[in-house]
């Protein structure tokens, strides 16, 4: 630990990131430019989230990292050990014990409480980017609150598929002002964004943007009156713990097309199994 400054980044970099975080919290949903640094991992592996985590961590924090809900994938394990080494923080896989949770593409099933910070890794922070490639134009669209194009995109979904086919990175409007990309979380997680007790910080390393949602912020998923937003998930109970209220991953288990559905949130699933809930693929009777 003595080889590094606390939490890896130098102090001037952390001050710059901290100033960006404060402006982000003051203007919920607005993307604050920041001078993203090279990190000892490739872009796309959470460099934005890592820089935000480095700027907010204190030695007393308990740190948790999830990658699509799981604590035990390569990305989650390596980021967790990175801060264990460079910041000396305690780590955990328990959602309720963690004070800072860095996440790739999921919000934990267990509701977060005050005093917790959720740090998102964001690949493309600009919700309008695939509709308008020019940064100068999207910046102008945000400043003029010109979001018609986004509604056209959702409308085209309906005319082509009969429903809004966007299933992840589903755009939201924050406090009636900025349209924001919630990072590629499944739209199942969108309702958790608003009115959350924890502070939510978003870091995009390659794209050099930080944005934030203070606790209890109004966040509305874009929709139409006749095609209201719907948080969807696979219509199955979890094969391991029998949960019917969690977001599920579909796992192929043999060469004959066999499959099972399991919770993407490993901590939630393991806690349920430890409490005696067993799904149909786990010898249980909880299967609905």
């Amino acid at each position: 630990m003595t080889e590094y400054n606390f939490a890896y980044l130098d102090e001037q970099t952390k001050r710059m990131i901290r100033r960006a975080i404060l402006k982000g919290l003051a203007i919920p949903g607005y993307q604050v430019p920041f001078a993203s640094r090279e990190m000892p991992m490739p872009y796309g592996w959470g460099t934005g989230g890592v820089q935000v985590s480095a700027a907010v961590l204190t030695p007393e924090d308990t740190f948790k990292v999830i990658d699509q809900g799981a604590d035990d994938t390569t990305n989650a394990v390596s980021i967790r050990s990175f801060f264990q080494r460079t910041a000396g923080v305690a780590t955990t896989t328990s959602t309720s014990d963690a004070t800072v949770i860095q996440t790739r593409h999921r919000i934990p099933e267990e509701p977060l409480h005050e005093g917790q910070i959720l740090v998102y890794q964001v690949p493309i922070p600009e919700p309008l980017r695939f509709l308008e490639p020019r940064e100068s134009e999207t910046r102008k669209m945000h400043s003029l609150e010109e979001y018609g194009l986004m509604h056209v995109k959702l409308y085209e979904d309906i005319s082509r598929h009969g429903h809004i086919a966007t299933s992840y990175a589903y755009p939201v409007k924050v406090e009636g002002r900025y349209v924001m990309d919630p990072s590629p979380i499944p739209k199942f997680d969108n309702p958790k964004l608003g009115d959350m007790a924890a502070i939510q910080l978003f870091g995009a390393g390659r794209e050099q943007r930080i944005y934030a949602l203070p606790p209890y912020t109004k966040v509305v998923s874009l929709d139409f009156e006749d095609h209201p937003f719907e948080a969807s998930k696979a219509d199955h109970p979890c094969g391991m713990c029998g949960a019917t209220d969690s977001y599920l991953d579909e796992v192929i288990i043999d060469d004959a097309g066999g499959r099972m559905f399991v919770c993407s949130d490993t901590d939630y699933c393991e806690a349920r199994q430890a409490a005696g809930h067993m799904g149909k693929d786990n010898g249980g009777k909880d299967a609905a």
């Binding site: 001050r15 901290r18 907010v56 204190t58 502070i199």
Partner: peptide, 14 residues
């Protein structure tokens, strides 16, 4: 500064 920033951030967020 890490501790002080957390105080400032909590204040600004709440």
């Amino acid at each position: 500064s890490a501790h002080a920033f957390r105080s400032v951030m909590e204040a600004m967020a709440r």
